[in-house]
Amino acid sequence: MAELQFREAIREAIDEEMAREEKVFIMGEEVAEYNGAYKVTEGLLDKYGYKRVIDTPISELGFSGIGVGAAMNGLRPIVEFMTFNFAVLAADQIINHASKAGYMTGGQITMPIVFRGANASAGQLGATHSVAFDSMYAHFPGLKVIYTSEPDDAKGLLKSAIRDDNPVLFMESEQMYGMKGEVSEEEDYIIPIGKGKVKREGSDVTVVAHGKMYHVAKQAAAQLEKDGVDVEIIDPRTVKPLDLPLIVESIKKTNRCVVVDEAHPFAGFAAEIGFLIQREAFDYLDAPVQRVTLPDVNAPFAKNLLDAWLPSPKNVIDAVNQVTYRN
């Protein structure tokens, strides 16, 4: 195991895949000469040159579409968005084109492309810079969506994403790029897309949390342990395809579940998981599934409002208390 920052784990994955396959290239705003807005791509320009590490203008729709066309025509692009908030401008290419071209041409087109970048809130950045988009993209057929919580997962899953022959959205967090974690040193370390992980074993309640929310759940679990509540945390890692069997298996043991999600509540990840659990594990539940999400309101700037807006360990503890009837 090596201790790496999140950004280093992502960089290793990109670097290894670029070294392995000539057709892989990366493009995005400030990825080359500036070494990445968050230094994820640091050093890659020096190593691979202007052909494969490409600075783009601020033209999200244009360069994403160029990525889609290049993927159709045999290359394997990694398209970096400075954040997924700006990928909204490229949604036409991702949703109307990347996810559908193969299907509507009767399978004549393959689309090996990765769209990656920072997702969700990152401090006091206001309403337009704080949105979590993983659930939204997961809504659309033809897309795979990954939002990892730890450097190890990021490395293994990003390598899989780059090798995948479908459009994959790989989401990161501005606030986690500097976070350190143990990363496998196994050669060619791959984690299959669609496999979740039990990140903390416990017997009293299952908490499902991914991305940045995993860390919120972890803090809550540490607190709850002191109160004698034994939390099992499942990190699905991949939002879609979803590792439902792993979640169901855990609920069969704990009989209670809380889903933590950094998106808004309506038709989000938490809503979907709640539905699936009642369908697949209804007889095992001792309490209705609860969810902790953002409220149905835009991100405020003021620090105190932002703190109230974000899901907190306290919110998770309250939800756990509710499903365990401890309040």
Binding site: F86, L89, G126, A127, T128, F301, A302, L305
Partner: peptide
Amino acid sequence: CSKGKGGSMHFAKTENHFWGGYGIVGG
């Protein structure tokens, strides 16, 4: 000026026909 909801990027004073600052480049 924006009740603390917007911060640095979203100053606005519509009564003076200043419609504000916006954070999505080109938006």
